[in-house]
Write a protein that binds this DNA or RNA. Sequence first.
DNA 1: GCGTTACTAAAGCATATGCTTAACCAATCA
DNA 2: TGATTGGTTAAGCATATGCTTTAGTAACGC
Lengths: 115, 115
Amino acid sequence: MLNQSSPLDLTFQALADPTRRALVERLVRGPASVSELAQPLQMSLPAVMQHLAVLESSGLVRSEKVGRVRTCRIDAAQLSLAEQWINQRRMEWVSRLDRLGQYLETLKDEDGEES
Amino acid sequence: MLNQSSPLDLTFQALADPTRRALVERLVRGPASVSELAQPLQMSLPAVMQHLAVLESSGLVRSEKVGRVRTCRIDAAQLSLAEQWINQRRMEWVSRLDRLGQYLETLKDEDGEES
DNA sequence: GCGTTACTAAAGCATATGCTTAACCAATCA
DNA sequence: TGATTGGTTAAGCATATGCTTTAGTAACGC
């Protein structure tokens, strides 16, 4: 719990909250200001800002302020990072099942030869 | 924070911890007992069990006890669920960029006609 | 300038999380 | 049967998280 979190920690943590996923779902359809993002959500503006801070520190969202409005947009590269980690695990799992299946086939063949 | 978390909440939350991702990385290579899983980790057995409980409540891991040994294995379907959520968002983002690109093309064409 | 808009900063609070240690139980094994 | 192995339960503790309210500040719009 010593705050030395990896990018992957921060990204999955960011995605673990429904409000933050809703923010991401909104932002993939295009950039938006803080108050635009807050408008459909049932919570105070500071709460939304704190969620945005989490998203930003994970790298999923970037933002810049022009005048008094801060415009937020997603960074798809970070989304891919999380997706890739999961995909690689699933691939390993599938390839293990394949090897297991092949092994079982050889057992069956040997069995056939024996009978 | 009222504990009414969706499967997606629980899955991303489970993946947000490096110890739990290490457990998943181990389990995609095949089933293992609790103490096998704990052995390479630098923490007490109860701590590992608590991580396994989080993984299990998210659906990423299932386990069954035979005699006195509990065998854990991953459930790849739950991995896919998380992957799909991210993938869908990335797809939306890409398709928006495509539409934006096409729009900019039409602007360029109109500009060409005007000159 | 003066009010409004858009955001920010700070504090406080309830609950959640990630560990620990100590004690315990139930299946093996000698 | 008595010791060991493999796992479990419970309690306690420090820190993190997800809000809130209150009180700002800075940029418009008139």
